[in-house]
C-alpha cells in the first residue's frame, strides 16, 4: 500500500562509499516483499519479483535471488547495463527502502541460497497472514524452483528511505 512517499537519500560518506546500517541489513533480510528493476539499451525498464536477499559483511555488497523463468528480461538487462534498483517493503508496517547499484552482475549461487529463499518465503508469509491473506496465497507469491535460481550482486551506491509518514511528499534528496 506504499506509494511514492518522501525520499531520504543517504549519499556516499566521506570515504566515498554507501553502507547499510545493521538495522537496515536486518530489515532487507527479513520477510519483506522485494522487487528489482533494470533497463535495456533503449532505457526500457524491466521488473521482477525477488525471492531472497543477502548482504555481505561489508554491508555494501548486496545479492538478490530471482527465478530465471520469471526474470528473463531483468537478467538480460542487468548483463547489458549493470544498473539495478531494488525496493524492499514490509507489508505490515509499509516501511520501504530502495537500493541502487551501477555494477550489478550475475554471480554464482552460494551454498544454502535455496534454503535462504525458502526461509524468506516463510518469513514473508508470517508477516502477511495477520493482514488477512491466506497461507497458500502468501506462499505462492514467493514460489520459485531451486534449479532456476539465479543470483545478482551489486555494490550499494544509493539508498532511499521511502516509508510513508508526516513528511510525505517532501523530497530530501540532495543535489548530486
Amino acid at each position: 500500500m506504499v506509494q511514492n512517499f518522501y525520499l531520504f537519500q543517504f549519499g556516499p560518506d566521506l570515504m566515498g562509499s554507501t553502507t547499510l546500517s545493521d538495522e537496515q541489513v536486518r530489515f532487507i533480510e527479513s520477510g519483506v516483499s522485494i522487487s528489482a528493476a533494470s533497463r535495456d539499451v533503449r532505457r526500457v525498464p524491466s521488473v521482477s519479483k525477488v525471492v531472497a536477499c543477502r548482504v555481505a559483511a561489508d554491508r555494501r555488497q548486496v545479492t538478490i535471488l530471482v527465478d530465471a523463468a520469471q526474470a528473463g528480461q531483468l537478467l538480460q538487462d542487468v548483463a547489458g547495463s549493470g544498473s539495478m534498483a531494488v525496493v524492499f517493503c514490509l507489508p505490515s508496517s509499509h516501511r520501504t527502502l530502495q537500493l541502487k547499484g551501477h555494477d550489478a552482475r550475475q554471480v554464482p549461487l552460494a551454498d544454502g541460497d535455496a534454503e535462504l529463499a525458502e526461509r524468506h518465503r516463510t518469513a514473508f508469509a508470517d508477516d502477511l497472514l495477520p493482514l488477512g491473506y491466506a497461507l497458500p496465497f502468501a506462499l505462492a507469491t514467493h514460489g520459485f524452483q531451486a534449479e532456476r535460481l539465479r543470483a545478482l550482486s551489486f555494490t550499494l551506491s544509493d539508498l532511499f528511505e521511502q516509508t510513508p509518514g508526516p513528511n510525505a511528499g517532501m523530497r530530501l534528496e540532495p543535489e548530486a
Binding site: V2, Q3, A36, R39, P45, V47, K49, M84
Partner: peptide, 24 residues
C-alpha cells in the same frame, strides 16, 4: 483493485532505473 501493491519500474534519461510500489 488495489488489494496487493504493484511494483512500477521507470528509468531516467541517464539510464538509472527506479522501482517503487504503488497502491492503485
Amino acid at each position: 483493485e488495489g488489494a496487493v501493491p504493484a511494483a512500477i519500474a521507470t528509468c531516467d534519461a541517464a539510464g538509472t532505473p527506479n522501482v517503487t510500489l504503488v497502491s492503485q
